[in-house]
Each structure stands twice: as structure tokens, then as C-alpha cells.
């Protein structure tokens, strides 16, 4: 089959909303885009374990400790599902990790912000997971089969994550004066970085167009951001928290909120390594990888010795 025919078949599959599977022919750029997006997503899950993991040993009740531990563990699992989805595109986990460790691959900028108080754990679950879920629900219908299947599994497991975060915020908002202040402070710090998670405005997003054409993404950054704001504002109001945006206003005509513009200069700084915790996050990942090397080598050596013994 010549390349024209292959491309026609590929486009036909997409237009019929059929999934592309690992062995199917696909354009090189589609493969590259997917590797970039899925691995970035995987890295975000793994790096995302760190800011929350920071509070596991300090969670204020046994219940809270168990929930947080289970949640952070889920994120590790999700990273794992996503790494194997990337691996089906012929790139090894080792290579993917190397891209992360050398700074070649990105991860979600939100995880470069510090978790300073317990309320930040609430804010992350409520806002950050809430934003992530919007994206992930859409990605269950993404065109690449292994990615879509990983997302179905992830969405099912994530369903408790946002609720646990909101529950923390609810408890704080009916608590002592210090607890209320803690909750509002966390919302103030995490609101804008969360809006940035959806990526730059559509007009400036370089990758968005292809992603939509290939049905990897099915909604634009701005559409998702708008939906997130519409959904979240009433949740904040219900528990007496104030969204830190002076321009926030209900717009009857568009049946949604008007809201202010995130500080995209800050966004670019964080993306380019200058967020408050970029060095710490990457440093922690590299350290874990390096310190784990002898363990992996030992496991490999043991497996080989066992094979020899069976063969002998």
C-alpha cells in the first residue's frame, strides 16, 4: 500500500470515530504527538505524587492519612497505565523517564507549586483534580485505543479524588477561624495555577489544532477552562469561600461566568523551570530513580540467575 492510501485509510478511520490501535499505520506526527502528550500526562501523575505525598506523614487524622495515601498511590497507578500506553508506541519506559529527568519532557506546571498547609491538600483534590477530570473525561474518547482505555480506567478510579478534596475544604470551612483562613488561603494560591492547567488560550496554543484534527483532543483549552469555572464557582460559594478574581461575573448571555485572565508570564516562567518547586520536584524524581538503580539491577540479576537454574 502506498503512503497516500495509508493516509486515506487513517483519515477514514478517524472520521468514522474508530480507534487507532498500536499495530495500525499512523502518520509519524500523530505518533510523535501522542508520545509527547501521553508521556507528559504520565509524568504529571508521577511528579504529582510529590506535593501531596509531602503531607502523608502529617495528615491530621488516621482516616485522612489513609485516604491521602490511597489517593497518591492511585496517581502512581495512573502514571503506570499511561506509561504502558506510551510504550505501545514503541518507546521504552526508560527512555520516557530519561526525557523527564533531562528536562526534555514536560509535566503539568501545577505541581511546581508548594503544598504549604493541610488545606492545600483539599485545594489540590477539589481544584486540580477537578480540572484534570474535565480533561480526562474528554480523553476517554480520544482516538488512540490504548490511551482511551487507560483514561476509562483512570476516570473510574479518579471519581473519589475530587470529592475527598472538596470534603477537606468543607470541613475546614465549618471549622475554627484558623481552619477557615487556611481554606481561603489555599484557594487564593491554587485558583490561578489551576486555570493555567488547561493550557494557553486557544489563539496561542501551538499544539491544539492538530490534536483536535486527529481527535486526540476533542475540546479546546478555552472551552474546558470555561466549563471548569462554571462548575467550580457555585461549589466555592456553597462553602463560603471567595474566588480570588475581581472580574468574575455571571454572564447571562453566554450562560457562563466571565473571568479574569491568568498571568501567562508566570505560566511561562513555571513551564521553563522557574516555578517555586521545579528543582525540588525533578530532583526528587531523579534521586528516587538513581537510588533505585541497585534494586532494579539486583532484581534483574536474580531473575537471570533463576532462569539459568531452570535451564541447568
Amino acid at each position: 500500500m502506498d503512503i497516500k492510501q495509508l493516509e486515506t485509510n487513517f483519515d477514514a478511520k478517524l472520521s468514522k470515530n474508530e480507534n487507532i490501535e498500536p499495530k495500525d499505520w499512523m502518520p509519524d506526527n500523530y505518533r510523535k504527538h501522542l508520545i509527547r502528550q501521553i508521556s507528559q500526562h504520565a509524568h504529571s501523575e508521577i511528579v504529582g505524587m510529590l506535593p501531596e505525598g509531602n503531607w502523608i506523614t502529617r495528615a491530621p487524622s488516621l482516616r485522612a492519612k489513609m485516604i491521602l495515601l490511597a489517593k497518591v498511590q492511585d496517581e502512581g497507578g495512573h502514571g503506570l497505565y499511561l506509561y504502558t500506553a506510551s510504550e505501545s508506541l514503541n518507546i521504552s519506559r526508560d527512555d520516557l523517564l530519561e526525557q523527564l529527568h533531562t528536562g526534555k519532557a514536560k509535566y503539568s506546571s501545577i505541581f511546581n507549586y508548594p503544598t504549604l498547609t493541610w488545606a492545600d491538600i483539599g485545594a489540590i483534590g477539589w481544584l486540580v483534580d477537578g480540572a484534570a477530570i474535565m480533561n480526562q473525561v474528554m480523553l476517554q474518547r480520544t482516538s488512540y485505543g490504548p490511551y482511551a482505555r487507560a483514561m476509562v480506567r483512570i476516570c473510574k478510579e479518579e471519581s473519589f479524588h475530587q470529592r475527598q478534596g472538596y470534603e477537606i475544604m468543607c470541613k475546614l470551612s465549618v471549622g475554627t477561624k484558623e481552619q477557615k483562613e487556611m481554606a481561603q488561603d489555599a484557594l487564593n494560591r491554587f485558583w490561578w495555577p489551576t486555570l493555567m492547567m488547561f493550557g494557553p488560550p486557544d489563539a496561542e496554543s501551538s499544539n491544539s489544532e492538530n490534536a483536535i484534527k486527529w481527535k486526540i483532543k476533542r475540546e479546546s483549552n478555552d472551552q474546558l477552562r470555561q466549563r471548569f469555572v462554571n462548575q467550580t464557582v457555585p461549589q466555592a460559594e456553597l462553602i463560603g469561600l471567595t474566588i480570588p478574581d475581581k472580574n468574575l461575573k455571571w454572564n447571562e448571555a453566554k450562560n457562563g461566568y466571565d473571568f479574569g485572565e491568568p498571568d501567562w508570564t508566570e505560566f511561562n516562567n513555571v513551564i521553563h523551570g522557574n516555578g517555586p518547586c521545579n528543582k525540588e520536584r525533578l530532583g526528587a524524581r531523579i534521586k528516587a530513580h538513581e537510588q533505585g538503580r541497585w534494586v532494579r539491577e539486583a532484581a534483574m540479576a536474580f531473575a537471570e540467575k533463576k532462569k539459568e537454574r531452570v535451564a541447568a
Binding site: Y81, T84, M300
Partner: peptide
């Protein structure tokens, strides 16, 4: 690959039911 080889995982929900592929590790 220092992460070890890749495996396919199949889960049986209940006895009597088929083993269904659920992912890798």
C-alpha cells in the same frame, strides 16, 4: 530496560468467568 520486561495482565472477576485483559506492567 532497567525497569524490567513488560507483562500482560488478565483478571478474572469471578470464578467461571473468562480472564479479561486489563493492562500491562
Amino acid at each position: 530496560d532497567s525497569q524490567g520486561p513488560l507483562w500482560e495482565v488478565f483478571v478474572q472477576k469471578k470464578s467461571g468467568q473468562p480472564f479479561v485483559h486489563c493492562g500491562n506492567l
